[in-house]
Computed example of a mutant assay.
Amino acid sequence: MSQAIGNAPTTGQNLLEVTELSKRFPLGRRSFFGGARPSAVHAVDDVSFTLARGETLGLVGESGCGKSTLVRLITRLTDPTTGSIRFGTRELADLPAQNFARDVDRGRIQIVFQDAGESINPRFTAADAIADPLRKLRGLSGVALRDKVEEAATLCGLPLALLDRFPHQLSGGQRARVGIARAIGPRPDLLVLDEPTAALDVSVQVTILQLLVTLRETLGISYVFVSHDLNVVRLLCDRVVVMYLGRIVEVGPARAVFDNPLHPYTRGLVAAVPRLDGVRDNALRLAGDPRSPIDPDPNACRFHGRCPIGTDLCGTAMPALRRFAGGREAACHFATEPA
């Protein structure tokens, strides 16, 4: 896997700018030796990144690192606690999620969920599912609506003869195509893909990934691609964001990050990827479990205590994202310039 497939050149103009974005879920008050204080889960903590037009940005990290919450913030399904979400020329963070559902820009940001079978109304036919956002967000009806439904289905390789079938009458790959067709129908500028191939057989995954490459080239869509499969991220994405316990620990071009990780957590993730020769670097294996996201120490690196190269400094000073050569960033006191 020496290079990414279908990588689109970026224009240098950012479609999305996320700045110091945080999301905390209050848990009420916790008692310690008779006292009590407010407590919260820090699901996303001070996250900043950009997405250029036509770019595919990968988002990776272990379960519980905050990927899904970040996706819900970007797509405005959840309101942020603090921070900025700049989409084109608009600031979206200040617009409540319930209002954004009726906003003119709702159609410009769409999401494809992990399991299309679970995200499609079982009472909807494939045509109904694809038509729903076109009707609500674009105000289409009648012949115009049917034409757009068939156009979206055709772009996604879904036979028109299947449009009158219900989800339980479709295969997993066909349901995935319905989910993608539903998302591209309103012609979004940004498509967020939350583990879109996780529930599919390997052979079907390949065809869906090739479809996503074709759609990006045809429609000029920007992607935020969430996945646990680092090989897929390396093939599909231009850049990658690595998250750990709600914070970004590394950012950079996908190939550079996977070939020469700067952060010890990223090294552990890459070392865990299965190889054809069966060889693994046990020295880089991640031991233990992540700390609790409830009221984490603001003065300590989130990876402290699990990091193979950590020192006492890591327990007293939160490392900031530092810039390195080649458009790379890493949040580690001991990260050095890439070789």
Rank of each mutant, 00 (worst) to 15 (best):
H168T: 15
R146V: 07
Q110R: 04
E150T: 12
A152Y: 03
A126M: 15
A161S: 15
A161P: 04
I109C: 04
L95K: 01
L140H: 07
T81F: 12
R106L: 10
L155K: 14
R123F: 09
C156H: 07
T78V: 08
A131Y: 07
V149N: 06
L163M: 12
A129D: 13
L170H: 07
G157T: 15
G139A: 15
H168P: 10
R76H: 13
A129Q: 13
D103W: 02
A144Y: 02
L92W: 13
E150W: 03
Q98D: 12
F87S: 07
T69Q: 01
Q110V: 03
V192C: 11
D103P: 00
G157W: 14
D94Y: 02
G107W: 05
T82D: 10
T78N: 02
V71S: 15
L145W: 11
L77S: 05
R182F: 00
P96D: 11
R102L: 11
A127Y: 14
L77V: 02
I184T: 04
F87N: 03
L73G: 02
A131P: 05
L158N: 05
I184H: 06
L193A: 01
G157S: 15
R138P: 01
E91F: 05
T75H: 08
G173Q: 11
T78C: 01
G157P: 06
L190H: 03
R187F: 03
T82E: 05
L170S: 08
R182W: 00
L70Y: 04
D105Q: 04
P133S: 10
P133I: 03
R90S: 10
K136E: 12
V104Y: 09
A161F: 03
D164H: 12
